[in-house]
Each structure stands twice: as C-alpha cells, then as structure tokens.
Amino acid sequence: MPLMLPLVVSCGLFGLGLYAVLARRHAVMVLLGIELMLNAASLNLVAFDTWWADTVHTGQSLTLFVIALAAAEIGLGLAIVLALFRAVGNSDVDGQEPPTSLLAEGGDEL
C-alpha cells in the first residue's frame, strides 16, 4: 500500500475540518471541525507508525493520547458552549453583542 494513500485522506479531512472551523456560525459546528482535524492528525500518526514498523509504537501511543485529549477538549468545549448559551441565548461564534452589560450584572454566571 502506498504511504501517500492515508496521507491524502488525512490532508482532505484536515482541510474540511479547517473549513468548518473558519466558516460555520454555530459553536458546536466549530467543535465538529476540530474533531475532524484531530482525526486527520491521528490518521497521519498511525500511518507513519505502520510505515516505520515502530517497535515502541510511538505513533499509536500518541494517537491514544490524542483521543483522550479530544475527549477532554470536547467536554470543556461543550461546557463553554452551554455557558455561552445561558449568558446570551444563542451559540453563535460570530456577530455577538459586546458582553459589557453581561459582566455588569452577574458576570460570575459565565
């Protein structure tokens, strides 16, 4: 199997994830894009691990760490989305009012 095959799939996934992060309005869609980009990086790591026939499995171990970090990231990200929704009533990443009035009365709810 040519090594370029997994690398090309990974490049495509990364580009699509980057598009979602840059273009979508809803914060959850931005998080989905980040997940796609993390998967692209993981696919690269596993492909290079297999190509190298690594005896200590550096790439696959790092992929497991990336998956655990992604779980932590999505938990925190969704907590922030929830807090944002509670504070301003929507989950958009663009076109929000400046949060001065929020901070004036009860900013600790953020």
């Binding site: 980057l18 840059l22 273009a23 979508r24 309005r25 809803h26 869609m29 990443v93 663009d94 076109g95």
Partner: peptide, 10 residues
C-alpha cells in the same frame, strides 16, 4: 447551521 460571512475566504 448557517455560515458566517467568512465563507468564501474560509
């Protein structure tokens, strides 16, 4: 799930 104005640039 709409897009922002950044879409062409993105």
């Amino acid at each position: 799930a709409t897009v922002t104005r950044n879409q062409p640039l993105a």
